[in-house]
Amino acid sequence: MMARARKKPLLEGSDTPPTSTRVRRTAQIMPDSGVTGHTLTIVMTIMCYLACLALGALILINNAIDTWTSDISRQVTVQVRPLRGADVEAEVLKAQAILEETPGILSVDALSLSDAAELLEPWLGETGLLEELPIPRLIEVSIDRGAPPDLDALSARLEAEVLGATLDTHRRWQDQLVRMAGTLRLIGYSVLILISFTTIAIIVYATRSAMFSNRHIVEVLHLVGAEDSFIAVQVQRHFLRLGLRGGLIGAIAGAITFTVLNVLSESTPAGGVGQAINSFSSGAYGFSIVNYLLLLLIPLVATLISLITARLAIMHILHDTL
């Protein structure tokens, strides 16, 4: 129709020849300022940072539990109690002999009486009487985790052949650690889920707010024949950027936090929280880069949550309009 009619201008001011270079730019249909402002970006960044801390804490817990349980399962202890009428030293030697001939045992180290007394000093104090007390004697046994001995059979043999001997496999401690780790993991996952739901709620609210503040644009788009999906794309691209930006800044801030904590905790005693934090960057098994890469999940998930939530919220709002 236009081609038929536009041989001559209908109204004044139309002398300029049409050239495609006359037009400068293509603006966004939904301006940035009307959809995702600075406040929302800050909130999103903080949520992503908190998610990073929660995820990092989960990694630390897993690393720490792995380290502790592997240490414990690598060692067992034989305890020889001094029974009346029995020669403890002879029983210890007998137990040592049994242990040394058992396959799957790497080393056997019997603690001397003075070593055993030292272990009790923190509770009983320094007194020369300790060595005269009937202190149980301990034998530390390192086992081959690749081909461990039959601990039940070993325990039965020790109890049968050595007077007062018991085998402590530390399984009770291990079970408690696993239970504690399970609780901590549950808390970590709960925090992540809470952060996700809070983020979803924020995005839904922000989407509604954006649709309300840009309703004049939405109305014009509708009236010129825009489909819901076209309108949704105009809004959701802002939330895509929001999720990506907030997620990346949050993840970088999280990585910096763990690196700083790592540096600060280098001087703390082994086996404590400091060692656990160290394991984040040094890695429990020497692949620390994986831990940092895991933090990249946060921008990915944040972007997906932001995008999908905004899309669903927009389509829901548009569905209620004519």
Partner: peptide
């Protein structure tokens, strides 16, 4: 644009129409 036409597809027509209604400049 809402018909998902590219700028290259509609640019000339729009410029021509704006000239037609006297808004070319």
């Amino acid at each position: 644009r809402v018909r998902r036409m590219s700028r290259a597809q509609y640019s000339h027509d729009v410029e021509e129409l704006l000239d037609w209604v006297g808004l070319g400049d």
